[in-house]
Amino acid sequence: MIDSRTAPYAAFAMRLALGIMFLAHGLTKLFVFTPAGTAGFFESIGFPGFLAYPVIAFEVVGGLFLVFGVYARWIAAIAVVQLFVASTVHFGNGWSFTNANGGWEYPIFLCVTALVVALLGDGAFAAKSSVKA
């Protein structure tokens, strides 16, 4: 049975964790690897390099939206797709993310986390709800 008193706070915690993760990944691509370096990496794994730019933008802006609770359900739903596509790079590396080139366990976990946020909703402390009450 779902505890309706604490469920909004659980959804908030999940939304916040997912948003911080996206911010960390997006800012790393932006400031450490650089957009050009990220584009080069994308090309090296078979993705078009130009996709690095919208991915970086989504991770930074989407991460902020998740943290602040702005259309979080929609952002999380889009994130499910983005994270699943990112996971495909790791499918051949086995389960554990400690495997060479990272396995698929962590990116699929993030994909499921985004799905949970999309299904649960914005949670407590959302600035702009994705759905009308």
Rank of each mutant, 00 (worst) to 15 (best):
Ala24Ile: 14
Ala24His: 07
His25Ser: 13
His25Gln: 14
Gly26Met: 10
Gly26Leu: 08
Gly26Gln: 04
Gly26Pro: 00
Thr28Ser: 15
Thr28Val: 13
Lys29His: 05
Leu30Ser: 03
Phe31Trp: 11
Phe31His: 10
Val32Met: 12
Phe33Pro: 05
Thr34His: 03
Thr34Pro: 01
Pro35Ile: 04
Pro35Ser: 06
Ala36Gly: 14
Gly37Lys: 11
Gly37Val: 04
Thr38Phe: 10
Ala39Tyr: 04
Gly40Lys: 09
Gly40Trp: 00
Gly40Glu: 11
Phe41Cys: 01
Phe41Asp: 07
Phe42Gln: 06
Phe42Trp: 05
Glu43Lys: 09
Glu43Asn: 12
Ser44Cys: 10
Ile45Met: 04
Gly46Glu: 07
Gly46Tyr: 03
Phe47Pro: 08
Phe47His: 15
Pro48Val: 07
Phe50Glu: 02
Phe50Trp: 14
Leu51Gly: 09
Ala52Asn: 00
Ala52Gln: 05
Ala52Glu: 07
Tyr53Glu: 03
Tyr53Trp: 13
Tyr53Ser: 07
Val55Gln: 03
Val55Gly: 08
Ile56Phe: 02
Ala57Gly: 10
Phe58His: 10
Phe58Trp: 11
Glu59His: 08
Glu59Ile: 06
Val60Gly: 06
Gly62Ile: 07
Gly63Arg: 02
Leu64Thr: 10
Leu64Glu: 08
Phe65Glu: 06
Leu66Pro: 05
Val67Phe: 09
Val67Pro: 01
Val67Gly: 02
Phe68Val: 13
Gly69Arg: 10
Gly69Lys: 06
Val70Glu: 05
Val70Cys: 06
Val70Met: 09
Tyr71Glu: 11
Tyr71Asn: 12
Ala72Pro: 01
Ala72Ile: 03
Ala72Phe: 03
Arg73Cys: 02
Arg73Pro: 02
Arg73Ala: 14
Trp74Met: 14
Trp74Tyr: 15
Trp74Lys: 13
Ile75Ser: 12
Ile75Met: 12
Ile75Glu: 06
Ala77Ile: 07
Ala79Ser: 15
Ala79Leu: 04
Val80Asn: 11
Gln82Thr: 15
Phe84Cys: 01
Phe84Trp: 12
Val85Arg: 11
Val85Phe: 08
Ala86Ser: 14
Ser87Thr: 15
Ser87Met: 12
Thr88Asp: 08
Val89Ile: 14
Val89Pro: 03
Phe91Cys: 01
Phe91Arg: 05
Gly92Asn: 11
Asn93Cys: 02
Gly94Glu: 09
Trp95Pro: 04
Trp95Ala: 13
Ser96Gln: 10
Ser96Ile: 08
Ser96Trp: 13
Phe97Arg: 08
Thr98Ala: 14
Thr98Phe: 14
Asn101Tyr: 05
Asn101Leu: 09
Asn101Lys: 11
Gly102Ser: 08
Trp104His: 10
Glu105Ile: 00
Glu105Phe: 01
Tyr106Thr: 00
Tyr106Met: 11
Pro107Gly: 04
Pro107Thr: 01
Ile108Ser: 07
Ile108His: 04
Phe109Val: 14
Phe109Glu: 11
Leu110Gln: 04
Leu110Pro: 03
Cys111Ser: 14
